[in-house]
């Protein structure tokens, strides 16, 4: 069980949207985390520095909230180390092949009314729903 948090989630979503708009207004870039990460892999793109800075900020934020806000941020995974590795690999392969993930297609692409992003988002939402149903209710594991 995780707690239903409509207000915090809406607020977080607004901040994610604000970041997407600012990255377009200032850098002219789509805020897709798969694409941003991809440009940092060797050999890094010529414009690696803004990518690294963005990711550094993204990683620092939760650390700062915990340190300064004196609060905990829930993080739980039901998966073993091996499942994390395999699952992560497949997440990366799928997102790279499909040219984007939740942030790139699901937020930025949909906001641009891109037909490719609409197809991508509907596809990954549907297969994610089906996968969780199969794992939790047909195979019956946690």
């Amino acid at each position: 069980m995780t707690e239903f948090t409509p207000l915090a989630s809406l607020l977080g979503g607004l901040l994610i949207g604000l970041a997407a708009v600012l990255l377009m207004a200032l850098h002219g870039r789509i805020m897709g985390l798969t694409g941003i990460l991809s440009g940092l892999l060797p050999p890094p793109d010529a414009d690696w520095s803004w990518r690294a800075a963005f990711l550094l900020g993204a990683i620092s934020a939760p650390a700062l909230i915990v340190a300064l806000g004196d609060r905990t941020i829930p993080f739980e995974t039901p998966l073993s180390f091996g499942a994390q590795v395999v699952g992560g690999l497949v997440v990366g392969i799928g997102a790279a092949l499909g040219s984007g993930c939740t942030s790139g297609h699901g937020v930025c692409g949909l906001a641009r009314l891109s037909p490719r992003s609409l197809v991508a988002t509907c596809t990954f939402m549907a297969t994610a729903l089906a996968t969780v149903f199969v794992i939790r209710h047909l195979l019956g594991s946690a």
Binding site: L37, T123, I135
Partner: peptide, 16 residues
């Protein structure tokens, strides 16, 4: 790619 990503996202709960 999106179908594969969704399967792994559902299984792990981890998107980039």
């Amino acid at each position: 790619g999106s179908a594969i990503f969704g399967i792994a996202w559902g299984a792990t709960g981890a998107c980039p």
